[in-house]
Amino acid sequence: MRSLLVSWQFWALLSAVFAALTAIFAKVGVENVDSDLATFIRTVTILLVIGAILTAREQWQGWGAISTRTFTFLILSGLATGASWLCYFRALKIGDAARVAPIDKLSVVLVALFGVLFLGERLSEWNWAGVALIAAGAVLVAYRG
């Protein structure tokens, strides 16, 4: 069990499960409320839960322990997350969850591309085939034919 808890695959799969639940819960939750307000409620909830986890595990660090570069990129990541959530909730408000979520998951394709272009990561031919299949799959699932 301990090896499972330090496995990136385990945590990535758990992330996928929670992301799927996010889409379903959000689709129901956004039905009778403005999508931006729904995003705000979700964000406050996340803030409170993560704050409680940090407190319970005594993981708070002083701001001085965080470099300016790290802080800058975490702020940029937060801004990108916020923009993503606002767009995602707006899409869920007007579209089917089963079609919105796959298009949102095109982020997997973009991460692969950005990782290669900006981070110098390398993908094998098999990896690129997987990226292409993910892109094709997302389009096919979202297609209303």
Rank of each mutant, 00 (worst) to 15 (best):
R144F: 05
A38N: 01
G82P: 01
V33W: 15
F18Q: 12
G78E: 07
V139L: 15
G115S: 06
A98C: 07
V17I: 11
A98W: 06
Y143S: 09
A98I: 02
V33I: 15
V111F: 05
L47R: 06
F18K: 10
Q61A: 07
Y88C: 00
V6N: 12
A138I: 00
I103N: 03
A65N: 10
W60G: 07
F71L: 15
L119W: 10
L140C: 10
A138G: 15
Q59N: 15
R144Q: 11
S7Y: 04
Q61P: 00
D34P: 01
L4Q: 02
D36W: 15
S124Y: 09
L74Q: 15
I134N: 02
D96A: 02
S77E: 10
A97Y: 02
L92F: 04
F114L: 13
L110A: 08
L54N: 14
S107Y: 10
A132F: 06
G78P: 01
E58A: 11
T81V: 14
Y143G: 09
D34W: 11
L79Q: 08
R122G: 08
A83K: 04
L110D: 00
R99H: 13
E125I: 12
T72D: 13
S124F: 07
V141A: 11
V49E: 07
T81G: 04
G137S: 13
A135E: 08
S3N: 09
S67L: 08
S107H: 09
A98S: 13
W85H: 02
W63D: 13
R57F: 07
L48F: 08
G95L: 01
W85N: 03
L123V: 02
W85R: 02
T43V: 09
A132N: 06
E121V: 06
G78L: 03
L76Q: 12
